[in-house]
Simulated assay, not measured.
Amino acid sequence: MHRIRVRVHAPVRSAVAVALFASLAAACSANPAPPTADAGTAGKDGDRPVTVTVTPTGRQAAAGEPVKVTAADGRLTSVTVTDAKGRELAGKVAADGRSWISERKAVPGTAYAVTAATRTRGGTAGTSRASFATAPAAKVNKVDWRPGAGATVGIAQPISLVFDNPVENRAEVEKQLKIITSNGTGGSWGWMRDWSGKDRVDWRPEKYWKPGTKVTLDARLNGTDSGDGGWFVRDYTTTFTIGVQQIVKVDLDSHQLTLLRDGRTVRRIPVSGGTPGGDKRSWRGTAVLMAKEGTINMNSETVGLGDAYDKMVDYSMRLTWSGMYAHAAPWNARWFGNANRSSGCIGMSNADAAWFYSQVRAGDPFEITGKDTKGVVAPANGFGQWNLSWADWQRRSALR
């Protein structure tokens, strides 16, 4: 074996010593890498560590925005964002590996942990961790919705959401509301002020539902700012089915109620509607059966009619928030089929009411006609939106 000796002249030795000293000094430096950098894996051959940046940051970060993770001097291979309960914010790394954005927004009053797997340009793998917390909501907005999960409803049943607190950011909220149907039925949301005075949004198709349609509401509201300091902090979902095609025709001029099923007459029932010429008249137009309430106390004072009546009423079927029902009214027996002498409801005999009550379901439309009525059922008075044209209903959407 040949040995090769290299003689280093003094100036060169001095340069080598200086370089060696500088190298050792750098290796012992106390200057740390940024908190989100891949400081532990500087890589080989001078490969630079990946610098990871997470937004939002801090302990009182603003909620309502997606979480964003970016990488410099390398790329992201995966990102995991979880809250204190282990629930994960899903997301996807961009094709170039330089960014990741969560599919959902950060929720108020929540602490998040971020773990990013990285790879330097030279191929060295590493891990970066960060955390942040969002400021709590000034007030939480909740939702009451219809119909309930698993229900089978009539062909006129809308999806109806009533909010605890005002909704100023209507367009942003509406974007989070998804309707999925088994047959591709289209429809539109419409905003209104509920009878209770609260903000409300309903969804209905252009025409009555097709029987057998499966419907799912997927309200992805968690982390959405409703405005005026209110936030949604959970999602809502409900699934229901459209039952058989039933339409109730009520002719107040002939004092007859007709139940149609799949276009065929099932039965005609003599009735008595609201007394003409005053506040006791019935509404006309399309009302939707809101609920079957059984035996209830009806008090005229609750609908602004003084002390006209206060009695227990059987087979009560609510049609409006303003107090119009279909129900048994044996005290009005002599008027059934002959004249309108009720206080605004659609009354019938006990026997007919018992049978009819067993046949109908929430969501069945009552198409009411008559010359002497109070007017057409308003959209927020129960489910009166079917009295609007399709174009007028679409104009109530915050996204149009």
Rank of each mutant, 00 (worst) to 15 (best):
A329P: 03
Y357K: 06
E206C: 02
S14R: 15
N169R: 12
S182H: 02
K280H: 12
S29L: 09
T70I: 12
V167F: 07
D364K: 11
A308V: 05
N350R: 14
E103F: 10
F163L: 06
Q246L: 01
G304Y: 11
A151G: 05
C28L: 14
A33S: 14
G74Q: 04
P270T: 01
M290E: 09
W191M: 10
S316M: 03
M192C: 03
K175D: 13
A291N: 12
M348Q: 05
G223L: 11
D194V: 03
A137D: 03
T110S: 14
D314N: 11
M348P: 05
D38G: 08
T181D: 00
P136G: 06
T241G: 12
W321S: 04
S226F: 08
D307T: 14
A380C: 04
V167R: 01
V143R: 00
T238K: 00
A137W: 01
W321R: 02
E103W: 09
T82Y: 00
P205R: 07
I101G: 07
A351F: 07
T237F: 00
L177W: 00
K44M: 08
A362I: 06
S14K: 15
G274K: 09
R7G: 04
G344Y: 08
L177A: 02
T57H: 08
P11G: 09
R220T: 04
P147F: 01
P365F: 11
S188E: 07
V143F: 02
L305S: 04
K92F: 03
A39I: 02
Y309T: 00
A354W: 09
M298N: 05
V303D: 05
V54L: 09
Y112D: 10
R5Y: 12
N183E: 14
R129T: 15
T41Q: 13
T152R: 14
T213N: 12
T118R: 05
W321T: 00
T275H: 10
G197H: 11
T127D: 00
D47G: 09
V143M: 07
V16L: 15
V6C: 11
T36L: 11
V12D: 06
R98W: 03
A171Q: 08
N169S: 08
L217M: 05
A135Q: 14
I247T: 10
S358G: 15
T258M: 07
W390V: 01
A130G: 12
V140N: 03
S254V: 06
T120D: 09
A25W: 15
D202G: 03
P147L: 00
V140T: 15
N297A: 11
R395C: 06
S23D: 05
W209T: 05
